[in-house]
Amino acid sequence: MGCFQSTSRKQFPGHEDPIQLASQTAFSVSEVEALFELFKSISSSVIDDGLINKEELQLALFKNRKKENLFANRIFDLFDAKQKGVIDFGDFVRALNVFHPNAPQEDKINFSFKLYDLDGTGYIERQEVKQMLIALLCESEMKLADETIELILDKTFMEADTNQDGKIDKSEWHNFVAQNPSLLRIMTLPYLRDITTTFPSFVFNSEVDEIAT
């Protein structure tokens, strides 16, 4: 491997060493290289600057760049770990690592908590959950009476907010997902186990000696 020297890396600011990234994540070096193929295709879809901006992530998720979406924005904010307004390759790999089937459950629980704690207060509050429910209804063009939304919120907080203080803290979230494991289903991407066959072209671009894997 490594027969062809890639010339594209210079266009990717913040492109981190695949060996380094593999050592920090559940991915092998080959898998990090395969993820680079995915990263390249997403990061060049609107502006070919080697970074993923919000519009490019929207486009990759919805195949439609015009569709503003609360949840896609939230995912973007969490992937943009350095809060630069763009996702570089290192951010991308480290965030996707949480979604790896072998990633620690604890990381998945913490990530999902942050995802739903829209205002970053350290609690998932009722008005945040209501905001997300309304966003979901708009997205799916479903209509529910406000009364029904309030009933869903009552039921949710009855079950999750065990100390009944009106907000869900991290330990309550921990217990709630333990009782409702299906809530973490979105936190695992089976594709990540098989990434080298999904994006096989990395083989031709690899700069890494197989021996390093």
Partner: peptide
């Protein structure tokens, strides 16, 4: 419809396509 009340809010929210990152892998 009374059906959604039997679900908790997070089960509903987690059906959003914006949270479904598997779309990233669809070419």
């Amino acid at each position: 419809s009374a059906a959604p009340v039997t679900m908790n809010a997070f089960e509903l929210i987690s059906t959003s396509r914006g949270l479904n990152l598997s779309s990233l892998f669809e070419k």
